[in-house]
Every structure is written in C-alpha cells, then in structure tokens.
Simulated assay, not measured.
Amino acid sequence: MIRGVRGATTVTEDHADEIFEATRQLALQMVAENSISPDEVASVIISTTTDLSSAFPAKAIRTIEGWTYVPVMCTHEMSVPNSLPRCIRLMMHVNTKIAQQEIRHIYLNDATKLRPDLVQKQVKSV
C-alpha cells in the first residue's frame, strides 16, 4: 500500500540556507515520526509558496544519507490571496502497512496553522 505522508513548515526569509535547513528538518521529522526508510519512499513532491525562489528544497532531501536515489520534485503552490507566506510543503509517497489514521503528518513553525487538528497529536520537533 502506498500512503501519503504530509508535512509543512515555514521560513522567515527567502534565503537558500534557511530553506535547506527547514526542509531537511521537516523531512527528518516526518521520517522519524513514521519510521520511514528511504527504500520505502516511492517519491517526494515539495511545493513552496511563490515568495520562495532562492533555492530548490529538493537539494536538502538529496543530502540526507541514503536518499540520493529517491525521486524528488519541486513545484510552486497556487498563489491564493491571504495564504500562509514562505511555506514549504512535502508529500512523501511511502510503501507502508501503517493504517491511514495512524500516519503522523508533521506541521512545524507557522505551518501549524494549516492543520491544527493534526498538530495537537504530534510530539515536539526533533
């Protein structure tokens, strides 16, 4: 069974280092909270709001040990009025036997506003 594991975070500024660090932190927490190994990942889609353009967040995923060959793609989110700014979203497609309701979706920083119903079930950042 392939399941989607969602995550989102925000950065304070459009700087490559901050985008890489936030993306890496988010991915590592998603992996830790769901006991995911790179061999179980079919693909990762990363989207950013259009106000982030200084770096490809996929580069951060590829620097994680064992993730070199995991297919990762970046795209921009729709530009919707009053949407959360400077947001990075991840969707991991993972081969797992975990039930849908047991998947731990991770929301960090200002992205906790996106899904407060899921945030309350989480453990603090790693």
Rank of each mutant, 00 (worst) to 15 (best):
M91I: 02
M92N: 00
I61V: 10
R89A: 07
R62L: 06
M92Q: 01
S83Y: 14
T63Q: 12
M73Y: 13
P85S: 09
T96S: 06
H76K: 07
T68N: 10
V94H: 02
I61F: 04
P85C: 05
V94L: 02
S83T: 05
I64Q: 03
C87H: 12
C74Q: 15
N95T: 08
T96V: 00
C74T: 13
T96L: 00
V94W: 06
P81K: 11
S83G: 09
T68E: 13
L84F: 12
P81V: 12
I88D: 03
M78P: 07
E77W: 09
N82W: 11
E77Y: 05
I88R: 05
S79A: 13
M92P: 01
V80M: 07
T68K: 15
G66V: 03
H93Y: 12
P85D: 07
P71D: 09
M78Y: 14
I64S: 04
V94T: 01
N95W: 13
W67S: 01
S83M: 14
P81L: 07
S83H: 09
N95Q: 08
R86F: 14
E77I: 00
R62Q: 10
R89Y: 04
S83I: 02
V70L: 05
P81I: 10
R89S: 10
W67A: 00
V70F: 05
T63E: 14
T63V: 09
C74M: 14
W67T: 00
P71K: 08
P85Q: 06
W67P: 00
C87L: 15
M91K: 02
R86V: 03
S79C: 14
M92R: 01
V94Q: 04
L84V: 04
N95M: 05
E65I: 06
V70H: 05
I61Y: 03
I88A: 05
C74K: 11
C74A: 11
M73I: 14
L90P: 01
V70P: 03
M78V: 09
R86H: 14
P81R: 12
R86I: 06
H93D: 08
C87Q: 15
I64L: 07
L84D: 08
M92W: 02
S83N: 11
H76W: 15
V72H: 03
M78R: 10
T63H: 11
V94I: 05
R62I: 04
R62D: 01
N82M: 12
V70T: 11
R86K: 15
Y69W: 14
M78Q: 13
L84Y: 14
I88Q: 05
L84W: 14
S79D: 15
